[in-house]
Amino acid sequence: MVIYLVLMLTDLQQEQKARIVRLDGGYGFQRKMRSRGIREGKNVEVLTRQPGGGPIVISIENKKTAIGRGMAGKVIVEVE
């Protein structure tokens, strides 16, 4: 049996991989995320976490995006 852990994107460590399951935010937020490739069902890897509360750099299908912690906290992911 595989157990899935549901976390926020901000909980992931560098080089950890996960799958996006939900976007917790208003319609505008969800839309903005999706139009830039951050969507439910996509596999995501954390490339770096900038120190001092700086942005997280993620990779989805080889496309890299820097995203602030506040926004990243609303991206809900699951890891095995």
Binding site: K32, R36, P55, V57, T65, A66, I67, G68
Partner: peptide, 8 residues
């Protein structure tokens, strides 16, 4: 002051 959200 919104956060960064930038494609690299």
């Amino acid at each position: 002051s919104p956060e960064i959200f930038l494609e690299i």
